[in-house]
Design a protein around this nucleic acid. Structure first.
Length: 278
DNA sequence: AACAATGTTCAGTC
DNA sequence: GGACTGAACATTGT
């Protein structure tokens, strides 16, 4: 699930539920998600501290931490990336979840609601001294947790670029626009589904060379990106996008009824309306 | 059983 | 060096 909207929801969940609570224990034993840290390294760095703020750029999040045991100064930042299937779950002392979005239906977006939820899918856990937890629940195990996350390879957050910057960054090069939108060093936050939804809303073919787009098309794309992102956050995830539910073999354009085209663009499976998206 | 999956990254080519 | 491509990564679901 995790594209910018899901990560923003996760960020809000942490902000609402996990800040200020003292970290009593840390399970950082997942070798893959916590690499290159050795098991115990993140734990040593965080126990006794509190999360004081959460930030996001694109699909990356990081929490700033307090000094140790209420002391002055600041601790290391805790970086979190949800990967392909991660979610953040924050619980109260009694174990009840105080997380945000409901992640309703559709082929995407359900993970923690599933009845076959396995404990081993919790890849990283902070336990607070009140007994509650912050967990990274991640079936596919491509998420990442690390201290002092490096953000230098990321472009500006997709939700925050203005039209001028958007046009300058996206509207160049010979690659397909979709590939350009997916490039996190160009813009941070757009994933496969959000890219399809944005291009569909803007009526632009994902295969168009990015540098060939005109000023009006880039403006339409920028508008569509902001609208699609905002709607996804409000509705609980990118899977709520207008074309997304039709994004299946044999699916039809919900606007004109034409059968959606399917192909690999920018290395990812792509659906678009061949009648409207030019 | 083979393949695709909302993620990034790295090696390799032009 | 920059732009671009494809495979690899770990795991699950179809």
């Amino acid at each position: 699930m995790p594209e910018l909207p899901e990560v923003e929801s996760a960020r809000a969940t942490i902000e609402r539920g996990a800040l200020g609570r003292r970290i009593a224990a840390v399970d950082d034993t997942d070798r893959y998600e916590c690499r290159p840290h050795a098991p115990g390294e993140i734990a040593r760095a965080l126990v006794g501290r509190r999360l004081v703020s959460v930030h996001r750029r694109g699909k990356s999040m990081w929490c700033e931490t307090s000094g140790a045991d209420g002391g002055e100064g600041a601790g290391p930042a805790l970086g979190i990336h949800l990967g392909m299937s991660g979610r953040i779950v924050v619980t109260d002392a009694d174990g009840s979840s105080i997380e945000g979005g409901d992640w309703l239906g559709g082929r995407y977006g359900r993970v923690a609601d599933q009845p076959d939820r396995k404990p081993e899918w919790d890849r990283f856990t902070l336990t607070f001294d009140d007994g509650g937890q912050l967990r990274l629940f991640d079936k596919r195990r491509l998420g990442r947790v690390r201290l002092d996350l490096d953000l230098s390879a990321l472009g500006p957050d997709a939700q925050q670029v203005d039209l001028a910057e958007f046009a300058a960054r996206v509207g160049r090069g010979t690659v397909a626009v979709k590939a350009r939108l997916l490039d996190q060093s160009v813009l941070a936050g757009v994933g496969n589904l959000l890219a399809d939804e944005t291009l569909w809303q803007a009526r632009i073919s994902p295969r168009r060379p990015a540098g060939e787009l005109g000023a009006e098309e880039l403006a339409a794309l920028h508008r569509a990106l902001l609208a699609a992102t905002e709607a996804a956050i409000a509705r609980g995830g990118v899977h709520t996008g207008e074309v997304i539910e039709h994004r299946t073999p044999g699916g039809h354009c919900p606007r004109c009824g034409a059968e959606l085209a399917r192909a690999t663009v920018g290395g990812r499976t792509t659906f678009w309306c061949p009648a409207e998206q030019r």
